[in-house]
Structures are given as structure tokens and as C-alpha cells.
């Protein structure tokens, strides 16, 4: 059976929101997998970058939000750099993180972090980490 997904099929409140806050168009992805092939963190993700986009195209937002992928993504932009369709997955991942963070659901609790990480890390790691993982 042929499955055809057009821009019109991709309308939902969730997709509208994620497209609005990221500026990306989910339908552009044609699943070549280049992003995942180049992603240095894909090995640790529950769902690989190109599958994250596919699941969003198919409306499985809960599956995507439950996965660790968005928290593992390091915003290195290798996916975007190699995407033939100019899809910026780093933005989609950030959009997903923001959806959680903007509801007040954080990935790390600063108080719970081991002391050696807080005392040993370069400042940029803490500032960057808190910006990405804490509301």
C-alpha cells in the first residue's frame, strides 16, 4: 500500500507548535538517513535522528517525547550540515527540549549534580548544560 504524506496531513496542534518555534518544516525530510549516519551521538539515542522526524511526520509525538534522543542530542549540527533537504534536526531537537522545559520539566536537577562536575567543569559546560537541560 502506498503511503502518501503531504504538508496538509501534517497539521496538528503539536506539529504547528514545533514548526513555529523551530522554524523547520517537518514534511521536507525524505528519510535518506544522512543525518543519522553522521550523528556522533545516535548510538546512545532511543530513537535515531531521522526516525525522530519520521515519527513526527506520522504523528507519534508521545513516542518522540518519551525517548531520550532530544536530551542526548548535543547540538553539533552535523545532521544539518549533511542534510540534502536542509532540514535542521538540531533545531527540532531543541524545539522538543523547549516543549518540556517551557512546561517546567527539567532534564537535570542542579542540586543533584555530583560536586566534582560542578567544581571541575569549565564554565562554558555549566552555562551550556543548564541552558539546554534546565528551564
Amino acid at each position: 500500500m502506498k503511503i502518501k504524506i503531504g504538508v496538509k496531513d501534517l497539521r496538528s496542534e503539536f506539529i504547528d507548535l514545533i514548526q513555529r518555534i523551530t522554524g523547520e518544516e517537518i514534511a521536507l525530510c525524505y528519510q535518506c538517513g544522512n543525518c543519522t549516519a553522521g550523528c556522533p551521538a545516535a548510538f546512545a539515542m532511543d530513537i535515531a535522528p531521522h526516525h525522530v522526524v519520521r515519527l513526527l511526520q506520522l504523528g507519534h509525538e508521545e513516542t518522540v517525547l518519551d525517548a531520550n534522543s532530544m536530551w542526548i542530542c548535543v547540538s553539533c549540527l552535523q545532521c544539518y550540515s549533511r542534510c540534502p533537504k536542509n532540514v535542521d534536526i538540531s533545531r527540532i531537537m531543541e524545539g522538543l527540549r523547549q516543549m518540556s522545559l517551557r512546561k517546567g520539566i527539567d532534564k537535570v536537577e542542579i542540586k543533584q549534580l555530583p560536586v566534582d562536575i560542578l567544581s571541575d567543569s569549565p564554565q562554558q559546560a555549566l552555562v551550556a548544560g543548564f541552558r539546554k537541560l534546565v528551564n
Partner: peptide, 11 residues
Amino acid sequence: DCCGAHISVSE
């Protein structure tokens, strides 16, 4: 390739 960047605080 990326070194892992800021997820050093969590992962």
C-alpha cells in the same frame, strides 16, 4: 566530530 559538548554535565 563532536566531543560530547555540554552533556558532560548529565551523560
